[in-house]
Simulated assay, not measured.
Amino acid sequence: MVYRYESDEDAFLEYPDPASGPPSGLGAAERPAAGPSPSRFPVPSLPRTNRLALPSMDPTPAPGTHPRQPPRAAVYATTGTAPSRATRGGRGGGGRMWQVVVGGAAVLVLLALCGLGAAALVNERNADPRTTPTEEPAAARPTAPAQQNLDARGTDPVPLTAREVFGGRRLVPGDGQATYQVLKTHSSGSCAVAATGEVAELLVRLGCSQVVRATLRTPDGQHLVTTGLFNLVDRASAEDARDRIRQVLDDREGRFRGMVADEETEAIGTAPARVGWQVRGHYLAYALVARVDSEAIRSGDPTAREILFDMIELHLNQGVLERRATGGTAAQPTEEATGSQEGGSAGD
């Protein structure tokens, strides 16, 4: 067996007593005549209980005898002895490579664990309703209302209701400050109940299927107004009614009828009145204004003109019909009107 020293550490020799020099019987340059030299591996500094005792060797053979050969099987038969040169050489090359590979794998595993932890924290934070607003499901999200074509009853089939047109006891047209008190509302499938004479006959002939109206007290308390919507077949029939009603009124062959709410509002049904009407789509909007004291209203009276504008243009056109055209409703969000009727007779 041949041992080779591959580094200074392998070649280091530890003597029991440095002052005593090499063992007796061997000179500085003398070597045994034959046979392998004794092992020069350093003796461990700590005693090992499982170390096998090797037979003592006399480096100098007796005259006429052969040098004693150490038993080869006993050199590395015990555990805990110094590793072989093959193993130590592996640590210097392949051992370091394995250390690098294992260390790199450990770093990659650590980075992966850190990434998973960060992802878990992000998911938990996103799931926390205190940090991120809860997103509504797509089916529950409000959508923009669809545009409604008001040119014909076929494209606008849903009937009007008194609650849609007059939804509360108070009405504020447009964005103004004037508040009208709603005294009575009424909806009927017979348009003739809201007119007299030729006007009532004309509405029936043109296919009017519904009238929704209300009587209100004006903000100054000195006037009453009955206003509402007639539901005709289409725009053409509504425009025909608009144009022919003027001639009927000029000839005094009929009129719009005011709706009496109580004893204090009888003037709306009997007193001289100012009237106005307008067409949008298949609807005919109208309003009738009278004084509470039954006095006649002079032509061009600014108060009467303002009341007609509030009812026909601001409330019915820009309020009720505009909301219906954009897919909404025009109900007032306050209390129900007094004396309201749905689908009944005129009663006045």
Rank of each mutant, 00 (worst) to 15 (best):
R130V: 09
T131L: 15
T131V: 14
T132H: 13
P133Y: 13
E135C: 11
E136Q: 12
E136A: 14
A138V: 13
A138W: 11
A139Y: 01
A139T: 05
A139N: 06
A140C: 14
A140I: 05
R141T: 07
R141L: 11
P142R: 12
T143G: 06
T143C: 06
T143L: 13
A144W: 14
P145W: 01
Q147D: 14
N149V: 06
N149E: 11
L150D: 00
L150H: 02
A152N: 12
A152D: 12
A152V: 04
R153H: 03
R153I: 08
G154E: 15
G154T: 15
T155K: 13
D156Q: 03
D156P: 00
P157S: 03
V158E: 13
A162M: 07
A162Q: 03
A162Y: 01
R163C: 07
R163I: 09
R163K: 14
R163Y: 02
E164F: 02
V165D: 03
V165K: 01
F166E: 04
F166Q: 03
G167Y: 01
G167N: 05
G168L: 09
G168E: 01
R169M: 07
R169L: 06
R169E: 09
R170A: 09
L171K: 00
L171Q: 04
V172R: 14
G174E: 15
G174M: 08
D175Q: 15
G176K: 05
G176N: 00
Q177C: 07
A178E: 04
Y180Q: 12
Y180C: 09
Y180T: 05
Q181S: 10
Q181C: 02
V182C: 08
V182R: 07
V182H: 03
L183Y: 09
K184W: 07
K184E: 12
K184Y: 06
K184M: 11
T185L: 03
T185D: 06
T185Q: 02
H186S: 11
H186R: 15
S187G: 12
S187V: 09
S188I: 03
G189Y: 06
G189R: 12
G189F: 06
G189K: 04
S190A: 11
C191H: 00
C191E: 02
C191G: 02
A192P: 05
V193K: 11
V193E: 14
A194S: 10
A194K: 04
A195R: 13
A195I: 11
A195P: 03
A195E: 07
T196M: 10
G197T: 08
E198H: 11
V199W: 05
A200G: 08
A200Y: 03
E201Y: 03
E201K: 14
L202H: 02
L202K: 10
L203G: 02
V204L: 13
R205D: 13
R205Y: 04
L206I: 05
L206Q: 08
L206R: 08
G207K: 09
S209T: 02
S209A: 04
S209G: 04
Q210L: 09
Q210A: 04
V211F: 01
V211E: 08
V212F: 00
V212Q: 00
R213C: 05
A214T: 05
